[in-house]
Design a protein around this nucleic acid. Sequence first.
DNA 1: GTAAAACTACCTAACGTAAGGTAGGTTTTT
DNA 2: AAAAACCTACCTTACGTTAGGTAGTTTTAC
Lengths: 212, 212
Amino acid sequence: MVVNFGANTAQFKETSKGFMENTVVSTKDKILDISQDLIQKRGFNAISFQDIADLVGIKKPSITHHFASKEALGIAVVQRYRNVFSIALNRLTNDETVTAMQALRFYFTPYQDLGETGDKICLCASLAGEFMALPADMQTEVAHFFDDHLNWLEGILAKGKKSGEFNFNETPKDLAYLFIDALQGSLIVQRATKNFTQLDRVIASLTERLKS
Amino acid sequence: MVVNFGANTAQFKETSKGFMENTVVSTKDKILDISQDLIQKRGFNAISFQDIADLVGIKKPSITHHFASKEALGIAVVQRYRNVFSIALNRLTNDETVTAMQALRFYFTPYQDLGETGDKICLCASLAGEFMALPADMQTEVAHFFDDHLNWLEGILAKGKKSGEFNFNETPKDLAYLFIDALQGSLIVQRATKNFTQLDRVIASLTERLKS
DNA sequence: GTAAAACTACCTAACGTAAGGTAGGTTTTT
DNA sequence: AAAAACCTACCTTACGTTAGGTAGTTTTAC
């Protein structure tokens, strides 16, 4: 299973007939892809309909045909992002053959993919950085993203501790805080300092600690 | 010693005669204070000269009398912020009576102060969130902020390990990454989720680990 | 000591640009 | 033929910035 959280390379989509078909990506999806990409690079308030339209290859007012407002577009981008994670993480949780460490390692991969871009961070970290300047409904979506991930992490850490796979002193919830904060912070800081080994070192620190 | 990194309460300034006198804060300092405050809340691209002027109590074009451009104002804000930390952290490093743990605890206080505001994050984390949309000279200042802090943290952690005060397996540099990323990430995430215990729990996790 | 000159700190007015968004017509697809 | 996709043209608002001017203060010159 490949899930691309950062780059915009959606090449397949499920049709209404329920089959996976090789299709041309719709303009609507292109708008979502490019908007997400631009927000991850520059933030929500620093991008414009004009920027998006130029990259999609349509005229500015045509965006309004697909999304009623910039806020509506922003909400759609975050909802899709949340949903991609939700599906992938639920699949991991429901698969009994996947160990806690394997699940955790899978959870790291989108962060690692983003780190390798050199100019992108997590969509919701970007939005959280300008949180107070966001429309209320976008704030809610961003908050839910972090709550989703904190709950999933807490569950995986608790499962690993219960099975004896992990060994730590904190509560699973407190360790979940540390994990998500360190991962998100790492992407933000390493993009600025251009030291692209930082995320990998942080992941090593976090996982090493689970074994002690 | 009290250093206020987040709130804008500069009440004293050194006069040309070299004495500390109780003075009215200059308009230029007010602009810096309010700009910093607004960036920490909303980011650089989401604030305008009009926002700043309204809060300072002057007209919009008067800001350009003190700062030639928005970029120049932004650079001045970050440079002052960096300088406040530089002075405080150097003082800690040079004081032989301060233990590594005391220095670390002091380092946490500005993060804790910011966490208590509920709506502000570190200035440079806010700017790093919209890093690719920042003028080049501002990017450089932001990068230097993180390098400053990483170097200081690495030094303190190395000092504590050498003296036997701290006990950890990672290199001091790798642990410095974890510390700054977790602290910065924590402020960002907890503002969005409104769970204001998160930073304290993360600091507890980080410090607990130094003792093992 | 005093008057001219220069400087500081603002102001009003207005500029060109770009933002998000709307109205209504045209092309493309089904 | 109908619906969806996209266009041109335009609107209002707001942006950073510039120009030019007015007090009040400080510096300079005689």
